[in-house]
Design a binder for these strands. Structure first.
Lengths: 243, 243
DNA sequence: CCCCGATTACTCGTAGACGAGTATACGGCC
DNA sequence: GGCCGTATACTCGTCTACGAGTAATCGGGG
């Protein structure tokens, strides 16, 4: 699922959406995007914008309407959405809405290498995250309430979604903090011992080598320990999916 | 905040983490990543891997240990983590954990252009999403339970996080579905009317033009309507942040 | 003992992302 | 009416991402 699009950039989606109402030239598209707050999530990258528009044109999803200069400004090319472009926009939207995609949030990447930090530091950093999260959530809630007075809720659903998800994150972090402070989390003792003594706990030694040395190579075995690693190994991560 | 890293790719983080335990050559790094299930989130891209390793070397974060050929395989270069590389790994992890970053989930992008679809279709697609989400969640829960029998929970936190967030998403989607089916969502009637008649509801006309035509250009005004847009305008989106 | 498919280990070329730079025009102020 | 700051509207070149290809080696079957 999720066939790759001729133009796969999400900026392209925004561009297509901006052209539904009427033809525009690239700079105006950027202006509209900015006015609609799109630039908050993805600050507008000029290079990308023009590349994306050019690619959309190459694939027949938009077409140049006119290339007029008024005053004696640099030439502006106005683009309109083609039939195919509209179809692509609709189809893409359908897919984005209907098919949940595994993504890789940056925080998740951070969690997966959390083991390189000492448990106490991890605790401290998670507290910081929670604090910042609270602040952001308050600001977002306020902004949302403000907008809700101006426009119908239907215009605000992505913001509401974002808020809901981030609230869940905050809740989860709070839970993890609890388990870390009370010491209830299984494996915590070993993690701490390991960072204090520098020795990999025997229970974990086997886990760390998973997938290494597919063709058991004597040279590699010999070379091991040549560089004395003064730091405990990263916590191993493993897949979430079966098979 | 979130200064850009010398090597900003998350794959680089995985590479650094894989080198903490001991030096490895790129292909072995890939093997370890695969064994740890990293390839589920981000299928391993060979080109990127070698580029990333080369960049890490260029910036002094990893260093070649030896470049031996055994048997007469193509030459393998073994890399180790440098002092600087370890520092970068730790610092980067700190940042990823402590600083919540605004991201742009693909679903959110989809929601922001949901208006291009008719409300009834949107409803149907959201139901599909919820179904798929339920299936994925069940599979993930099962996999997690399976793993929990083999390794301590501390190795599973990213998976638990992912699960929590996706559960929140499912809940939110369920809520939205409710509001759409009962018709409780403000703006729904206009949205429906607009897709049925093709006419932009008067309450929304002004909103759609936000940010357009900064220098009120007579040519642009004239050109409007030249292309009769047979499709209702996209729902406008606006920022989540104040200021 | 030789062949064949799988595995190992990369290389290279292209397409895309992006930032810094450029050049013009408008409007307000003295 | 001339000057300056800001907004307009891009262009260009570099750096990055990535997939398709390549080539060697290993192990097992006939």
């Amino acid at each position: 699922m999720a066939k790759r699009r001729r133009v796969g950039n999400l900026l392209a989606l925004a561009v297509l959406a901006a052209l539904v109402e009427r033809p525009r030239h690239p700079y105006e598209i950027a202006a509209v995007l900015r006015a609609r707050g799109k630039d908050q999530d993805m600050p507008i990258k000029w290079g990308s914008l023009y590349t994306v528009v050019a690619n959309l044109e190459r694939h027949g999803l938009v077409a140049a309407v006119e290339s007029a200069r008024q005053g004696r400004r640099p030439e502006r090319t106005v683009y309109r959405l083609t039939e195919a472009g509209h179809a692509e926009l609709v189809d893409w939207t359908r897919e984005l809405v209907a098919v949940p995609e595994r993504e890789q949030p940056r925080f998740e990447a951070g969690l997966s290498v959390l083991g390189v930090l000492a448990p106490d530091e991890a605790l401290d950093l998670l507290r910081q995250r929670l604090d910042r999260l609270k602040g952001q959530l308050a600001a977002q809630r306020a902004a949302l309430a403000g907008h809700a007075r101006e426009v119908p809720r239907i215009f605000l659903i992505e913001a509401e979604y974002d808020l809901a998800v981030r609230e869940a994150e905050a809740t989860w972090v709070r839970g993890l903090l609890d388990e870390l402070t009370t010491g209830a989390l299984p494996g915590l003792a070993e993690w701490r011992a390991w960072h204090e003594t520098g020795a990999v706990p025997p229970e974990w030694a086997a886990l760390a080598e998973r997938g290494a040395e597919p063709h058991r190579d004597p040279a590699a075995l010999a070379e091991r320990g040549a560089e004395p690693h003064r730091d405990p190994a990263a916590l191993a991560e493993r897949g979430t999916e079966p098979h």
